[in-house]
Amino acid sequence: MAISPDPRKNHLLAALPDAEWLRWLPQLEAIELPLGKVLYESGSTLNYVYFPTTAIVSLLYVLEDGASAEIAVVGNEGIVGISLFMGGESTPSRAVVQSAGHGFRLRARTMKDEFNRAGPVLHLMLRYTQALITQMAQTAVCNRHHSLDQQLCRWLLLSLDRLQGNELVMTQELIANMLGVRREGVTAAALHLQEDGLIRYARGHITVLDRQGLELRTCECYAVVKKECDRLLPNKLAT
């Protein structure tokens, strides 16, 4: 796959004012993000922040026994590595590419210097961070109170918002790891959605056939996350 030449396919980068954009452009490094690539591990010091353009990155919390659950997804609307400029330097979560594609990375020192200028970059990143925190909180509520069918619909919709088309390359095992459930549960939920004509699933490919049907089927958590993203970020960032 050819590397995407346009950093402004990432909405945060597209929202940078001209002065900041001209400073950043020579520093941005185009990278390929293959499925399953780990961008950082729990507790590791971040050397880069990442701006996906066509890839989706899952933020996972991994327990001592190896079990995991997704706490948020980041795609072309955002940045991976907020702990770097929030002052923590590291994070207890793991960042893994859940949908292959491309993106750009920026060195940690450059990101911190830009954030510490206390200008437009600081305000843009803080608004994005608030939107991401909302997604994390709503994910926790959803996983506790809503059915697996509803969780799967929410997860599919959040992923679709960050992709160009209507197809995801994703195995049931990977979805199970994201949602923190047994693979058999994902199989049953996916079959229900397929029987109702909402998706088609075959050999790791999920094709969404009826997005409106998914929106009607899911819980309120998807709408809460989307509304907050739309509220906090510029219009061209809205997914």
Rank of each mutant, 00 (worst) to 15 (best):
A72K: 15
A72P: 02
V73I: 15
V73Q: 15
V73T: 15
V74R: 05
G75S: 03
G75Y: 05
G75H: 02
G75D: 00
G75K: 09
N76P: 00
N76V: 01
N76A: 09
E77T: 15
G78M: 09
G78L: 06
G78D: 07
G78C: 04
G78P: 00
V80W: 10
V80M: 00
G81E: 04
G81F: 07
I82G: 08
I82F: 13
I82W: 14
S83V: 08
S83L: 02
L84N: 09
F85D: 00
F85E: 04
M86V: 13
M86Q: 11
M86R: 11
M86A: 09
M86H: 11
M86L: 14
G87R: 03
G88D: 14
G88C: 12
G88T: 13
E89N: 08
S90Y: 06
S90V: 13
T91P: 03
T91L: 02
T91H: 10
P92S: 05
P92R: 05
P92C: 09
P92Y: 11
P92H: 07
P92G: 08
S93T: 12
R94D: 05
R94V: 15
A95K: 07
A95E: 05
A95W: 01
V96W: 13
V96R: 14
V96C: 13
V96M: 15
V97C: 02
V97R: 05
V97E: 01
V97H: 04
Q98R: 10
Q98L: 10
S99I: 05
S99Y: 08
S99R: 03
A100R: 01
G101E: 04
G101V: 04
G101K: 05
G101N: 02
H102I: 01
H102G: 09
G103T: 00
G103S: 09
G103Y: 09
G103H: 01
F104G: 01
F104D: 02
F104M: 06
R105D: 06
R105T: 04
R105V: 07
R105Y: 06
R105K: 08
R105G: 10
R105L: 05
L106Q: 03
L106F: 01
R107E: 13
R107M: 03
R107Y: 10
A108S: 12
A108V: 07
A108N: 06
R109P: 07
R109M: 03
T110A: 04
T110V: 07
T110I: 12
K112S: 06
K112V: 13
K112Q: 12
K112M: 11
D113S: 10
D113A: 07
D113W: 01
D113N: 04
F115E: 01
F115S: 06
F115N: 00
F115P: 00
F115Y: 11
F115L: 01
F115I: 03
N116W: 15
N116E: 14
N116K: 11
N116T: 12
N116H: 15
G119D: 06
G119R: 09
G119L: 10
G119M: 00
G119K: 10
G119H: 12
P120A: 14
P120W: 11
P120N: 08
P120F: 12
V121D: 07
V121K: 14
L122M: 14
L122C: 09
L122N: 10
H123D: 07
L124V: 01
L124G: 02
M125R: 14
M125P: 09
